[in-house]
Simulated scan of single mutants.
Amino acid sequence: MSELSGILPLFKPEGMTSHDCVMKIRRLAGTRKVGHTGTLDPDVTGVLPICIGKATKVADYLHDEPKTYRAELTIGIATDTEDAGGQILETKEKQDDLTEAELRYVFERFTGAITQVPPMYSAVKVNGKRLHELAREGKIVERQPRQVMIYGINPEEIRLDKPYPTVHFTVSCSKGTYIRTLCADIGRELGYPAHMSYLQRIKSGPFTLEQCVTLQTVAKAAEENTLHTLLYPLDRALIQYPAVHVPQGRVQAILNGLSQRHVNPGDWEKGDKLRLYAPDGTFLALHAVVETDRDTGVESKPVKVF
């Protein structure tokens, strides 16, 4: 039997860490070559692409892709973890001057490149120790701000008719974005303590919530020896790059790690990545453009060979 290989879009359940999910899939798939593509906190559900076998080679590319979340912001209550699981630090009931127009204006201001300070309850390392470990020891250390991208943020349901208003919203963002911190920062901009009271990841790279399978489905497939039918090919993680078919006579050269000259190139720039395929559609390699001479063609060299 050939080695199990592919990407499993898993629906991560509440109460499990991303590492718990990896360990479970390792047992079910019977291989240690398993990795996830972006940590979700234990109380967060949603899309967690799992790479199995050779697909672990593309895990970093999936991890780097934008993510989309459905979240709830609660205004007027701050917690030490910036989410609903933390200890309450501060409260402030809604004042009459808080309006829907102001809320929408503030949300809009958080579009584009923004700066975040990683929360103390996070996996970021400072001097070799994770912040959440220091936080549990009662320590607060200085954290360096990070720039992240908010590609789009859309308030969908605004409830101002209660002492602690809530806003349900969707947000598309770059890797490394803390939605907890985004909620706390939005609250701060409004003049209120705030926290994230709900979060679900609904898209990770090309994978959506609708494509996800549960651990129960995976366990049943493993028992019936049909786990391979739940997997997507590893090149699905790279669909953001143009696909190029090479002549049959160049297939072995590509597999051997040689460069390729493209005589009918697209509108590519130096550094652009390309997916190279054999004439029969077999995925061969991921290349990067290293030379763009419009007279002699474009040359690409391998980044990874599959």
Rank of each mutant, 00 (worst) to 15 (best):
K94F: 04
T296I: 15
E90F: 10
V298Y: 00
R136A: 00
Y277H: 12
V290W: 15
N154T: 13
V298F: 01
A55L: 00
M23K: 14
T39G: 08
V126C: 06
I52Y: 04
I75K: 06
Q260P: 03
P165M: 02
P42K: 00
T166D: 01
Q144A: 14
V244R: 06
G53K: 05
T31A: 04
V244G: 01
Q252I: 07
Y151I: 14
G112K: 04
P49Q: 01
L227K: 01
T81M: 13
G257C: 00
P49L: 08
A219M: 10
L62I: 05
Y121R: 11
H36L: 06
I158G: 02
G205C: 07
L234E: 04
C173T: 10
G53H: 04
L255C: 03
Y69W: 08
D97T: 07
H195A: 05
H262T: 15
D60R: 15
L134I: 02
E156D: 12
Q260W: 12
K175Q: 12
V298S: 08
A113G: 13
H287R: 04
D185I: 02
P13I: 03
V44I: 08
I254M: 07
T214R: 05
D20M: 08
T81N: 13
A194T: 00
Q252M: 14
G281R: 13
Q200V: 15
C21N: 12
Y241N: 13
A285W: 09
V167C: 07
L28Y: 07
E291L: 14
R201Q: 07
D267Q: 12
G38D: 05
I254L: 00
T91W: 05
P163Y: 03
G138K: 02
I114A: 00
M23P: 11
K175S: 12
D97S: 11
G297F: 03
E223S: 14
T214L: 09
E299M: 14
